[in-house]
Simulated assay, not measured.
Amino acid sequence: MKVTIFSAVVAFLIVLLLGPIVIPALRRFKFGQSIREEGPKSHQVKAGTPTMGGVMFIISLLITSIVVYQNITGPLAVALITTVGYGIIGLLDDSLKIIRRKNLGLRAYQKLIGQVTFALILTVFAYNNIGSDIHIPFTSSFIDLGWFYIPFMVFVIVGATNSVNLTDGLDGLASGVTLIICVFFAVVTFGLGKGDLSVFCGAIAGALLGFLKYNSYPAKVFMGDTGSLALGGAISALAVLLKMPFILLIVGLVYVIEVLSVIIQVTSFKLTGKRVFKMSPIHHHFEYIGWHETKIVSMFCIITAICCLIGFLAISF
């Protein structure tokens, strides 16, 4: 556990040091966020806020992993590849948004191709090295998915990654929720004796804690798709490598609610012409009914903390 805590401290300090360097550079190169015109009016003042801040915790994660756990092979290596790979997809998406000066980057199919590619790398590694069985929550049982493991896990990874991306809509929301989930996985990986993945979790948690100094309300920088997709990749990698995709549904309930709100909204509008929520994802709905950003973020973080406690109960092996 000492090594995990040390990795968190190192990552935290690196992000704190990168902030005064990266944020002014992003502002200087006019890497500012474009805001959806149909979004809450209160968000229009955020237009131009530096984005792509996710590069800070990606760099921190890489440096920390190399410094603390020099033998980067196996699960740690594939977890880093997945995280950085999804981060690169997000970086390309953010770059196109900046170039076009619109909240429109890569086309959906282009992002999907990249996401499926890195999901396959992670899934095939897991299939060949740790098996095709997954844990059933609240039991000590595992179920072997056989050949179905690969398409199932690819679906989980892509779905989870995009859910994290949808959650990144308020200052400190995605970073705060994911920080709590990473602490959960840090404890789990330590308990299972997986020191490399424990360092990975500690590094992400520490980096996000440092990032919150700049990303909490009012945000001085946004993580952008660079950061949200990278975080989605990291969380997905942990769920796959620990054989816990169903546990991710529990601890990541906020992610699930966010993506379901979009699905419900779109489906309802196409079938009936009516909207269920004032706006989706659901965090914007709460804004429209008068909740302040900080209240919404606090509520979602509390829900995540409670879900993580339930997650500990669900792991009984």
Rank of each mutant, 00 (worst) to 15 (best):
K97R: 13
K97M: 00
I98M: 05
I99D: 13
I99R: 15
R100K: 14
R100Y: 12
R100N: 15
R101G: 09
R101H: 13
R101N: 14
K102H: 11
N103G: 08
N103V: 10
N103R: 06
L104Y: 12
L104P: 03
L104I: 04
L104R: 12
L104W: 15
L104E: 13
G105W: 03
G105D: 00
G105R: 10
G105Q: 01
G105P: 10
L106N: 10
L106K: 02
L106P: 12
R107Y: 15
R107P: 09
R107E: 14
A108H: 03
A108V: 07
A108W: 10
A108F: 09
A108R: 03
A108C: 09
Y109I: 03
Y109K: 11
Q110R: 04
Q110G: 05
Q110D: 03
Q110P: 08
K111E: 04
K111A: 09
K111C: 05
L112Y: 07
L112V: 08
L112F: 12
L112D: 04
L112T: 06
I113V: 12
I113R: 04
G114T: 06
G114Q: 00
Q115K: 08
Q115W: 02
Q115P: 09
V116D: 05
V116H: 05
V116P: 00
V116K: 00
T117P: 09
T117V: 14
A119M: 04
A119H: 03
L120F: 01
L120C: 07
I121T: 14
I121L: 15
L122C: 05
T123M: 04
T123P: 02
T123F: 00
V124G: 13
V124C: 14
V124A: 10
F125I: 09
F125Y: 13
A126Y: 02
A126K: 02
A126D: 05
